[in-house]
Write a protein that binds this DNA or RNA. Structure first.
Length: 440
RNA sequence: CGGGGCGUAGCGCAGCCUGGUAGCGCACCUGUUUUGGGAACAGGGGGUCGCAAGUUCGAAUCUUGCCGCCCCGACCA
């Protein structure tokens, strides 16, 4: 993409409402524009990142054996009345009436709808287990939306729903998602901690929330530091993932609402971590909570009919955009992990109109376009300082700086955003270096 | 939902107390000189002062009502 053709409305000054880094930088870097409280327009740069995160979430869901569907944003109240949640959910649910005075709602979650769908098709244990997911916009009429996309009213969520014949099988479905979550966050460049969680209004028996550490996190976290040092499990072939799950859950890790100081004190002092975190995922195992009232029953091998055992698994995709920035920024702007960066490399032309500089930039641009690295070429006729500040703000992992001064000696400069390190390299070395950095 | 506050150009703000032709910085446009870490100078465009009613010769300014938004706390991807 050439910057001269792009829509990138940057702000030099910080809008007054933004108090945390991710919100400030998302506004300043032209990623989002607020339209009303907790509702945002996704501008090109923000949308690109959102889509990249969505893609990684999708790939990891597919790897875990989940199957993608798409449910509507607008739901009928009927399923919610069947489960009793129409009354229980409260004012967070946006209720709408259509022209026929029918009660509709903008979905805050989809257990009720998917349970209804599932029961019409599946009657036998032979069609189980099954996990379905979708990535869809949700609306929750939060009392106080804030922190930009971190707590919007409208937000993009991946929600998966598992269906099993019994609790033993349901445990395996839960474990698959647990492992998929660890891998997902790892690919997003995040260190996520699974915490034993309260089951909240969705309800159920077993639940973990996943937090990423950030100073501005809304939750206080107490955990064992070894948990933070663990690598993502990657693709695990064994059928029963219990060992992998146990290897994480055996460490003490609680948010303050579930905190037990005496157990925390048992951890060696130098391994105790007290930090703040942002919730970026939550998984639940809730058995027959919805299947029972909705008569979503399946017949087992023994011929007995019983409610299908369910779980649900949420990842806040739009929240992750903010979460990643919270976890990865400095005083100059965002520092994107390579996996979600909106563009792979920024090309800075320090003297637009200079034949040699223009030519080298164009060659670089073409090479990176072809190699799929997606360059953002700053071909605007601005001063160097402005270009440097701009590129730092939007946070691409690598910058190639091309100017007449370096070109005279046959070199271009490569800047690594995260460290600030600058390398003076030949054209070929610069290209090879960037390309090799993106090879898996 | 309790507490606090704000609405004046795209963004950041002053003006309001004490009513009298709407201002500053950034951004934007034109020109000149510049150009390797957010350039300088000169000129210029952009506003129903959140909306409505009222008081007044006259309202951004005073009064009332409404709408919107933010911040701090208690609750949630």
């Amino acid at each position: 993409m050439r910057l001269s053709n792009y829509f990138l409305p940057l702000l030099k000054e910080t809008p007054s409402e933004a108090t945390i880094a991710s919100h400030r930088y998302m506004l300043r870097a032209g990623m989002v524009k607020q339209d009303s409280a907790g509702i945002y327009i996704w501008l090109p740069l923000g949308f690109k990142v959102l889509k990249k995160i969505e893609k990684i979430v999708r790939e990891e869901q597919n790897k875990a054996g989940a199957v993608e569907i798409l449910m509507p944003t607008i739901q009928s109240s009927s399923h919610w009345k069947e489960t009793g949640r129409y009354d229980a959910y409260g004012p967070e649910m946006l209720r709408i009436k259509d022209r026929g005075d029918r009660e509709l709602l903008y979905g805050p979650t989809n257990e009720d709808m998917i349970t209804d769908m599932f029961r019409t098709y599946v009657k036998s244990y032979k069609d189980l287990p099954q996990t379905l997911y979708h990535i869809q916009w949700k609306f929750r009429d939060e009392r106080r939306p804030r922190f930009g996309v971190m707590r919007g009213r409208e937000f993009l969520m991946k929600d998966a729903y598992s269906f099993d014949v019994d609790l033993e099988s349901a445990r395996l479905s839960y474990n698959k998602q647990f492992v998929a979550y660890l891998n997902t966050y790892d690919r997003l460049g995040l260190k996520a901690i699974p915490l034993r969680a309260d089951t909240g209004p969705i309800g159920g028996d077993l639940s973990h929330e996943f937090l990423i550490l950030a100073e501005t996190g809304e939750s206080k976290v107490y955990c064992h530091s070894d948990l933070l040092d663990m690598e993502a499990p990657g693709s695990v072939m064994e059928k029963d993932l219990q060992e992998v799950v146990d290897s994480r859950t055996s460490f003490y890790a609680r948010a303050d609402d579930m905190h037990d100081q005496s157990k925390f004190d048992e951890i060696p002092k130098d391994k105790q971590v007290v930090a703040r975190g942002i919730e970026v995922g939550h998984i639940f195992q809730f058995g027959d909570k919805y299947s029972k009232p909705m008569n979503a029953n399946v017949q087992g091998a023994n011929g007995r009919v019983s409610p299908v055992m369910m779980g649900s698994y949420g990842v806040g995709v739009s929240r992750l955009v903010g979460g990643i920035i919270e976890a990865s920024h400095d005083e100059n702007g965002i520092v994107w992990p390579k996996s979600v960066t909106p563009f792979g490399v920024g090309i800075i032309n320090l003297k637009v109109g200079d034949d040699d500089v223009d030519r080298v930039c164009e060659e670089l641009y073409e090479i990176f376009e072809k190699s799929g690295i997606e360059p953002l070429y700053d071909d605007k006729n601005d001063r160097g300082g402005q270009k440097f500040a701009r590129m730092d703000l939007i946070g691409l992992p690598y910058q190639i700086i091309v100017g007449p001064r370096g070109l005279k000696d046959g070199i271009v400069e490569v800047k690594v955003r995260i460290s600030g390190e600058k390398k003076e390299l030949s054209f070929e070395d610069a290209v090879n270096y960037i390309i090799s950095e993106y090879e898996v």
